[in-house]
Each structure stands twice: as C-alpha cells, then as structure tokens.
Amino acid sequence: MTSPRPDPATLKTLADCRAGIDAIDGELMILLAERQAHVAQVVGIKAREGVAAAAPTRAAAVIERTRQLALDVGVDADLAEALWQTMIDHFITKEEAVLGKGGSDL
C-alpha cells in the first residue's frame, strides 16, 4: 500500500514536487501493468470467439469515455485522448501479431 501523497499546493521545493511526481509515476506504472494484464487476457478470449484484434467501435467508445473522465477530473481531454490512443494502437499491434487481422468487430 502506498502512503497518501501531499496536496501539491503544500509543496514548497522543486525536490518535493519532483519526489511527488516520481511517486505518481510509480503508481501509474503499476496501473499500466495491471491494464496490460487485462488486455493480455483479451487475446485468448478474442481468439476463442473469432473477434478481430482491432475493434474500431470499442476503441471509439474507450476514447469517448476517456475524454469524459479526463474532463470530469480536470485533465486536458486532448492529452488523455493522445495517451489512450497510443495505448490502444500499441495493444492492437500486439494482438494482431497473435490473432492476425481477421475476425468481427465486437
């Protein structure tokens, strides 16, 4: 379990700010690894069900949801979209290496 992070408004030094950013980066990596593990499970399910690696309808829904979540918490929606699009493209490429490019869009 991680300790609570201080309110950024209370940080007075560059070193304190950088330490906070580094801690957040570590937490983000843990979450990214967890997301990656979920996506890895998807490959076997897609193979079994004949679903294509690329699912444009799903990708569009994820991007739309990501933009709204970003807006809800005060994150730049364009930044969030760019980050998620990069992840989606990366994972589709990985899935296509296993599944090929055929299948249905579910």
Rank of each mutant, 00 (worst) to 15 (best):
1 M>I: 13
1 M>N: 08
2 T>A: 10
3 S>I: 11
3 S>W: 12
5 R>Y: 15
5 R>E: 12
7 D>H: 08
7 D>Y: 10
8 P>S: 02
8 P>M: 03
9 A>D: 07
9 A>T: 11
10 T>N: 04
10 T>M: 08
12 K>R: 13
13 T>N: 02
14 L>I: 15
15 A>V: 15
16 D>V: 09
18 R>P: 01
19 A>N: 01
22 D>T: 12
22 D>M: 09
22 D>P: 05
22 D>S: 11
24 I>S: 04
26 G>M: 03
26 G>R: 04
26 G>Y: 03
26 G>D: 06
28 L>E: 10
28 L>I: 15
28 L>T: 10
29 M>D: 15
29 M>K: 10
30 I>Y: 10
30 I>L: 12
31 L>R: 10
31 L>W: 15
31 L>N: 10
32 L>S: 10
33 A>Q: 13
33 A>P: 05
35 R>T: 11
35 R>V: 14
35 R>A: 13
35 R>D: 07
36 Q>V: 13
39 V>A: 10
39 V>L: 11
40 A>K: 07
40 A>P: 01
41 Q>V: 12
43 V>E: 04
44 G>W: 01
44 G>M: 01
44 G>D: 02
44 G>S: 02
45 I>A: 02
46 K>D: 07
47 A>R: 03
48 R>T: 12
48 R>W: 15
52 A>T: 10
52 A>L: 07
53 A>P: 02
53 A>G: 02
56 P>W: 05
57 T>E: 06
57 T>M: 06
57 T>D: 05
59 A>D: 14
59 A>H: 09
62 V>R: 04
62 V>D: 05
63 I>V: 14
63 I>F: 04
63 I>Y: 03
65 R>W: 14
65 R>F: 15
65 R>I: 15
67 R>A: 07
68 Q>C: 09
69 L>I: 14
69 L>W: 13
70 A>E: 01
70 A>P: 01
70 A>K: 02
72 D>F: 07
73 V>G: 00
73 V>Y: 07
74 G>N: 04
75 V>P: 00
77 A>L: 06
77 A>S: 11
78 D>T: 07
80 A>T: 01
80 A>P: 00
81 E>F: 04
82 A>R: 04
82 A>N: 02
83 L>C: 04
84 W>I: 14
86 T>H: 11
86 T>M: 08
89 D>C: 08
91 F>L: 08
91 F>S: 09
93 T>D: 00
96 E>Y: 00
97 A>W: 06
98 V>T: 12
99 L>S: 00
99 L>T: 00
100 G>L: 03
101 K>Y: 13
101 K>N: 11
101 K>P: 05
103 G>F: 03
103 G>S: 02
103 G>W: 02
106 L>A: 14
106 L>H: 09
